[in-house]
Design a protein around this nucleic acid. Structure first.
Lengths: 247, 247
DNA sequence: TCTGTACGGCGTACGTTGTACAGCGTACGG
DNA sequence: CCGTACGCTGTACAACGTACGCCGTACAGA
């Protein structure tokens, strides 16, 4: 406990300690550890990162659980490394020359690609920045998409950050909703199990909009026809909202 | 494990079983249990609900841990009850007669009030609906705020739901960022602990935007002058984005 | 009034988690 | 050649959720 933040940062940025390597050589590579941890998290679905355990990772790597503590201060820092590695590995399109709408759309879609590759990434706490090289490179790249817009709309730096956060928040939220349906498996069965009680209790006179809209939204979500309509809706709204800044 | 969803729903809606009350009378009231659980979660800060344990709640209530399992199927269902109770307890402004911008703003602010009263509420998994009376009443009330806009902008039911989700997502995301600074306590100290490594590693030549914008956003966030600028930015963008639907 | 039984309460126990600590062996600096 | 720093790990502890089975209560039916 009481882990030194500087130690975690040094780990993220792979800043080696003075290296008076005295004892036996290390048997594992930190990159391998993180890669295996990522694979384990991926196998665990949307909650894979939360479910990632030190013991399971150690088993996977063929070492004793406590061995991992010579590579990483603790479970939380391990998770940070996994997250930052995923950010670092993101493909970043070169959208130079395109209009700002296309650039922002590309940023949003890069994030959706990330969430498809690593479903747990949509569940990482957005309030706790990792400040690693991956997150920094991601941030830098994504801010660049705002360059043109920020000038014509005269967004200052604080608003640039807010606008990016805005775009990413909507993207993550849309992903979370989609994951629910994947995750639920058979949506039909999910509703069927709840229908008897809901019918008894959801009075359409008392909750007219909730019943009507909820049914429509539920049906749309489980129809294969239009799986990401809510996502496109959100993205268009975001772009329109930002466009309104340009007069 | 393998808890019956119907049982959970019945619990949420307080649908009593046939009531052939045979054994001794119950010593606790489910409302009390939920109220105490809420208090415990509130005391635990933003992660209070995740940190709420059956054992701690039992201690608080003066019963053995296993006793709680006669009231509630398990920890997860307890959390659902706490969440739904919080939704049920929200104050809902009557905004009849106001314009849609005011109505949507009121909805957003009601949610921010919720998050201030119960910081853990912002961490509730948005992908897993609770379907209790509190959530339903909240949903009904919030959909009503879209009535006027949905007609003039001709939003169908699916888009109504998407628009509400959109508004709430941005609200929650803004809250999460704010909680970080509260939670961090002394932001000055937080950065000070990380500055030495970051200075060594954050090359402004390599990450020009990230360094500049990150510094600006960080400074703005910790300045008391403008604590929720990002929030107002997001809200305005949401409203503008929806306004663009009206031609 | 007596008795069978359904049910509330809970003591014990198991499997899981993160990780503190102390010991062991290795390989390099002096 | 030896001291020492360091990689590795076995054991242990404190939490967690909860399955199981016992105990005692209080009502239903006789």
């Amino acid at each position: 406990m009481a882990t030194d933040p500087a130690r975690t940062l040094a780990l993220l940025w792979r800043v080696e300690p003075p290296a008076g390597a005295r004892g036996p050589r290390r048997g594992l590579d930190l990159y391998d550890v993180v890669a295996r941890a990522t694979a384990l998290a991926d196998a665990g679905g949307p909650d894979g990162l939360a479910a990632l355990s030190v013991r399971a990772l150690a088993r996977e790597l063929g070492v004793a659980p406590m061995t991992l503590y010579t590579y990483v201060p603790g479970r939380e820092e391990l998770a940070d490394l996994v997250v930052d590695a995923a950010y670092a590995a993101m493909a970043r399109r070169d959208t130079a020359g395109l209009g700002w709408r296309e650039r922002l759309t590309a940023v949003a879609e890069e994030n959706r690609t990330l969430y498809r590759a690593h479903p747990w990434a949509a569940r990482v706490d957005p309030g706790r920045p990792v400040l690693g090289p991956g997150e920094t490179a991601k941030y830098e790249h994504e801010l660049a998409a705002f360059d043109e817009l920020a000038e014509t709309a005269s967004l200052d730096d604080v608003d640039r950050d807010a606008a990016l956060t805005f775009l990413l928040d909507v993207t993550r939220a849309a992903t979370l909703v989609e994951q629910q349906s994947d995750d639920t498996g058979d949506a039909q069965a999910w509703w069927a199990a709840r229908a008897p009680v809901l019918e008894q209790v959801l009075d359409p006179g008392r909750y007219p909009r909730a019943v009507r809209v909820g049914a429509a939204a539920g049906a749309a979500q489980q129809s294969a026809r239009d799986p990401d309509r809510a996502w496109r809706f959100g993205l268009e709204r975001v772009l329109d909202g930002l466009a309104a800044l340009i007069r």
